[in-house]
């Protein structure tokens, strides 16, 4: 464990809590892509199947449970409790365009052809594109609530911190997880234009609105 990974996990947890608080307090999920949240729940479900078979540490187990709970609670709030405020007409990204190629790729490119390993690989590839429906929705509506931009900032920051964690682990313990690193780079790149808008607009107190 290193400081980059801890900061990354904290940033990830903070993002999820920010989103939950936003929906819970405003009792509204307008502007939030339910499809992205479904993909995140799927990412954690397929990645944490080893929750009971592969004990890494108490921290690892506790965080996995918290992440799973947050993900499913968020999906429940969007499609269950506050579904009347969910603007599905703006959440139109075609998930099959992500799920089909990623499923194929996880069968082709993985560390070992076993169910758990293919599902883990699937979750890594899926996570790199899971935010696309949300970014697509923002580009479609042309704006995002400030709290939503903070959610996206910490969500993008977490995987950027994981890149630093992988560099650190490569130099200190010769650890190199190519599938995770390549996917993590792709995932972080998807946030770049958002990061630019976040820094130049939101941090200056302006509302995030796309040109």
């Amino acid at each position: 464990m290193n400081v980059f990974r801890i900061l990354g996990d904290v940033s990830h947890l903070l993002a999820m809590i920010l989103l939950l608080l936003k929906i819970w307090r405003s009792k509204c999920c307008t502007g939030i892509s339910g499809k992205s949240q479904i993909l995140f729940a799927l990412v954690f479900t397929t990645r944490y199947l080893d929750l009971f078979t592969n004990f890494v540490s108490l921290y690892n187990t506790v965080m996995k449970v918290i992440f799973l709970l947050c993900a499913y609670l968020t999906v429940y709030m969007i499609y269950g409790k506050f579904r009347k405020t969910f603007d599905s007409e703006n959440d139109t990204f075609r998930l099959e365009f992500l799920l089909v190629p990623i499923t194929g790729l996880s069968f082709l490119e993985n560390y070992s052809f076993t169910p758990l390993e293919i599902l883990w690989t699937f979750s890594i590839y899926l996570e790199s594109v899971a935010i696309l429906p949300q970014l697509f929705m923002i580009s479609k509506t042309g704006e995002a609530e400030t709290i939503t931009t903070h959610y996206l900032f910490f969500l993008g920051l977490y995987r950027a911190l994981y890149l630093a964690n992988w560099i650190w682990r490569y130099h200190t313990e010769n650890f190199y997880d190519q599938i995770a690193v390549v996917s993590g780079v792709v995932q972080t790149i998807f946030y770049c234009d958002f990061f630019y808008l976040y820094v130049t607009k939101v941090l200056k107190g302006k509302k995030l609105s796309l040109p």
Binding site: R47, N54, V56, N60, Y111, L116, N165, Y176, D177, Q178
Partner: peptide, 10 residues
């Protein structure tokens, strides 16, 4: 990569 099934990251 790490040996299969031994992923220690979240």
């Amino acid at each position: 990569g790490p040996e299969p099934g031994r992923h220690d990251e979240l």
